[in-house]
Design a protein around this nucleic acid. Structure first.
Lengths: 248, 248
DNA sequence: GACAATAATTGAGTGATGCTCAATAATACT
DNA sequence: AGTATTATTGAGCATCACTCAATTATTGTC
């Protein structure tokens, strides 16, 4: 029995002595992979080519990533992490629900279509093509990243409901599918037609009908008016509370 | 110069003498491919395996289909043809616009998720993973099939507008992205959770908000109203930011 | 029904792929 | 400086999509 600290270490761990050197290698390989996958597609790029562009041998690549799929998964993870980080920051900064959705959507499409729409390529590949069973899907990437990312949409809608900005009987699952599915199709359209200049207005055109359909109550059009200020008011009151406390 | 009748025949043409026998072979290969692609995924199934299951040698498979991609493309084409045929029939039978959309959506999701969601696998693979350039995309499958299929959505909305059922200023491109993107995500959800029993209600939950947002005429007043206060809101946010910073 | 002529089928062969592993080189430790 | 540990390498492996000369099956003619 070794004195390894952690009980369960599934990572291949070729790296232990010189962390900075190892991190540099890993970063080099990842960068090459992102570039080449974006330019030519996942299946069109060989591990030999990725290794060559990173300035290492093919064997070394497989020391750092247990498989070509693992390399892809790692890229996916970093993109999801970025998506989630950006989203959390947007929720922190922006309190108006409608603008929250707008900014979340814009962030999603922008990240999705970066690097020659690498994210779109990878996520589709991973979800629909290369997975045989769906066990792997419930592992690292999806249960942890995709779900926690999709969660920001749910939070935004629920908060808007609590503030009275949106109807109570919104079908959250359906709206989530429309939101992410619509954005994915929009991203594909923007990418194929190279029309990123219109990105903001196109995203707005997609979000507005969703918002409208969640917002409309039977006849009460006055509620949204007040509630537009709810978020900011709540925030000001919270700050005031803290000022009160510290003034004591 | 041969006396071949047609000027431009890009097809590989191994079949000429006995059409019925050849068609049977082709059908056998296609059936095997559909089954295996659906069960294990496109890249996980070898041409050897497809040929073996169809009861022919690998060479014969390549006599009938010039490449594995061509085989996939052929499957895609048949699915698109079926989708379009069904859709045209729905437009012919059903005249109520809302029910038209509902039935178009239901047909889309049902076909999409059949054969272990084969269609989802193939379309994603073809669009995002295996194509390097996007020239091939503008060829057979997409310009002819996808576009002509997407067209049934546009027709349905436009007819509803002419009848005065829907607003005139609907953003058709955005609604199309929401429709097909939302249905794709719904299909994925239904497939992954094996919840096809709910398919009709889930499709309805997806279509209803779209319909509502296209239908509401005077609802458009709420969003401009809110934006009229955006300047004020922005100032309040700025104050909140300053208070936030100094309270830290 | 025998015999060419033609068409359809075959499977060993080809280069490329993802991945492995014994051998080698580089680094760290005493 | 010398040893032990770790990192790197690239030839080798099974498998892949695909080809093509050889073989088998089918058709047309008498």
């Amino acid at each position: 029995m070794s004195a390894a600290s952690s009980i369960n270490v599934p990572i291949k761990v070729p790296i232990s002595k010189n962390p900075s050197r190892a991190q540099q290698r890993e970063a080099d390989i990842l960068l090459s992979a992102v570039q080449l996958f974006g330019e030519e597609g996942f299946h069109a790029v060989s591990t030999r080519k990725i290794a060559a562009q990173a300035g290492v041998s093919e064997g070394t690549l497989f020391n750092y990533f247990s498989s070509k799929n693992a390399l892809m998964r790692r890229i996916l993870e970093s993109i999801y992490t970025e998506l989630t980080d950006n989203a959390t920051e947007i929720l922190r900064q922006e309190f108006a629900s409608h603008r929250r959705l707008q900014r979340l959507a814009l962030n999603h499409v922008k990240v999705m279509t970066r690097d020659n729409a690498l994210f779109m390529r990878l996520i589709q590949s991973y979800l629909n093509v290369d997975l045989r069973g769906y066990d792997e899907l419930r592992d690292s990437v999806f249960d942890k990243l995709n779900l926690s990312y999709a969660w920001v949409f749910d939070v935004t809608v629920r908060e808007a409901q609590e503030r009275g900005e949106l109807r109570q009987d919104v079908n959250l699952s359906a709206m989530r599918d429309l939101f992410f599915g619509g954005l994915e199709y929009l991203g594909r359209t923007l990418f194929l037609h190279d029309s990123f200049a219109e990105i903001e207005s196109r995203v707005a055109s997609l979000i507005d009908p969703l918002w409208l359909s969640m917002q409309i109550a039977d006849g009460a059009t006055t509620i949204p008016l007040e509630s537009a200020f709810e978020g900011t008011l709540a925030r000001l009151e919270a700050v005031a509370d803290r000022l009160d406390d510290s003034a004591r």
